[in-house]
Design a protein around this nucleic acid. Structure first.
Lengths: 226, 226
DNA sequence: AGGGATGATGAAGAAATTATGAACAGCCCG
DNA sequence: CGGGCTGTTCATAATTTCTTCATCATCCCT
C-alpha cells in the first residue's frame, strides 16, 4: 500500500513516514506541489496526504490538477488551525477528508485506515493464482493450501506481482512499489532477482510456472491457462 | 474488550471510562456522532454506549447509520429522563438496551455485563487453542487444564490474539486494542514484545508453538493444525 | 557457433528485527 | 511506609532478513 506525504516540514513528513512504515505501508514524501504532482503522475499511490501550505503550487492547486487528470486516489488534506473555510474548498475540489493541524498520530492513522478501507477493501479479496493464494488482509500466503512463511519483502513483492497478474513488471516498478523512497535507482546489485529466486523456491515454482521471467524487462505472475 | 462511550459531556465520559478501565475493559470516547461513526467504522468495538443528545448527528442517527452498514455491535442507549418514547424509537432502530440518565455506575456496569454476555456467549463461548483455554466471561485462562494467573494486560493481549486466531496481527493493532486511547504510536519501547514473552513463559509456550512471531508484522495465535 | 548481454544461484557480511534479562516507577494494600 | 505486583523502559544477545558480490548458466543476435 503506497502513501504519498506532501508537506514542507521535513520533520513532520519523516514522523508520519516512520509510523506508516511500521504499519507496513510504503511511504514516500514530497516537499512541494510540483514534486508531488510529478510523483503522482509517474506512478499511482493508494492514498495522498496533502498539506495546504506548500511552496510553489499549494495543496488546493495540486488537488485541482489531480482531479482534472481524473486521478481518483483518495486525498486527506491537512489544514492549519483557523483555516475553517478551507475545509469547504478542499471538499469541493474533491478531497476525501481533512484534518486540522496540529493533530495526533492516532487520529491521522484512524482516518487513513478509514479512507483506505472505503476505497480499497471491497477490491481486496484473496489473490489466487494457480496453487498460490495470498490474503492481503491477514498477510498469509498458501501454496497447495499449506501456509508458506514469507519475509516482508518477499510478501510485498509477491503481492505486487499478483496484483498485476499477467502483466510484465519491470524491476524498476517493483523496486518503486516495494522499496518506495528507500529505493536506490543506481544500485548495481541484483537484489530483486535474489528475492524472486527465494520466492520461487518457497512457492515450489521450480519451472518458473507462476513467476515468469520476462527477459529484458523483469517478471510477471502468470495464470496457468489464461 | 473494547467499549466506545459516546457522550458530549466530557466529565461523564471520563467517569465511565475510568470505571470501565478498572474492570479491564478498554474504553474510548467520542463526543459527537460523526467522530463516533468514524471510530466505529475504522475499528470494531465490542460494545457502544450511546447518548441520544449529541451535537451534529444525534444518537438515533448514529444508530441508524450503524445498522444500515450491518454493524451488529451491541448498543446501550442513554436517554435523559422523561424521554420515554425514545425507548421505543431506539429499540426499533436496533438498540439492545437503554438506560435513563441519571443512572448509577453499578447499574450501568450490570447492563454492560449483561449485554456483553448475551452477545459474546453464543459467538464466544471459550477461546480454545491447543492446550490453552481462555474464558472471556470469567476472565480465566487454563493451560493443560491448570488455571494460569495472567495480569490484565496479558489477558487482554491473549484474548485479542485468540479472537483473531490464525491471522497475523501487527503490533500496532495489538496496541490499539489493548491500550486503546492511551496508546502512544511514537513509543520506541518493545513493550508488547515483553508482554508476549511473559505470556509465552506462563503458557508453557517455549517453542512459540501457539503464539507465533510473524517477522516484520507482529504475532499470531496459531492452531496446531489449521 | 561465438560473444555479449541478461538472468540464476550460492554464499557471506551487513542490517534489521526480535528475544531476553534486569532495572525502575507506580500503585494498591496492609 | 514497605512489600509485592504490574507495567514500562533499556541494554544487549540472538536470530532472521536483506543486500552485495562472484560466478555460472542461459538467451539472443549475427
Amino acid at each position: 500500500m503506497r502513501v504519498l506525504i506532501v508537506d514542507d516540514e521535513p520533520e513532520l513528513c519523516a514522523q508520519i513516514a516512520l509510523i506508516l512504515g511500521q504499519q507496513n505501508y510504503t511511504a514516500e514524501t514530497a516537499s512541494d506541489g510540483v514534486t508531488a504532482l510529478e510523483k503522482i503522475f509517474t506512478d499511482p499511490y493508494d492514498l495522498i496526504i496533502l498539506d495546504i501550505m506548500l511552496p510553489g503550487k499549494d495543496g488546493f492547486e495540486v488537488l485541482r490538477e489531480l482531479r482534472e487528470e481524473k486521478v481518483t486516489v483518495p486525498v486527506l488534506m491537512l489544514t492549519a488551525k483557523g483555516e475553517v473555510s478551507n475545509r469547504v474548498k478542499g471538499l469541493d475540489l474533491g478531497a476525501d477528508d481533512y484534518l486540522h493541524k496540529p493533530f495526533s498520530m492516532a487520529e491521522l492513522l484512524a482516518r487513513i485506515r478509514a479512507l483506505l478501507r472505503r476505497s480499497h477493501e471491497q477490491a481486496n479479496p484473496s489473490l489466487i493464482i494457480g496453487n498460490i493464494q495470498l490474503d492481503p488482509h491477514t498477510r498469509m500466503v498458501y501454496c497447495n493450501n499449506q501456509p508458506v512463511n514469507l519475509t516482508p519483502k518477499e510478501f510485498s513483492l509477491l503481492e505486487f506481482l499478483l496484483y498485476n497478474r499477467n502483466r510484465a513488471i519491470s524491476r524498476f516498478n517493483m523496486a518503486e512499489h516495494v522499496w518506495g523512497d528507500a529505493f536506490d535507482p543506481f544500485t548495481m546489485s541484483n537484489n530483486i532477482d535474489v528475492h524472486i529466486k527465494n520466492l520461487r523456491r518457497k512457492l515450489d515454482d521450480q519451472a518458473g510456472n507462476i513467476i515468469v521471467t520476462v527477459r529484458g524487462i523483469g517478471y510477471m505472475a502468470k495464470d496457468a491457462h489464461p
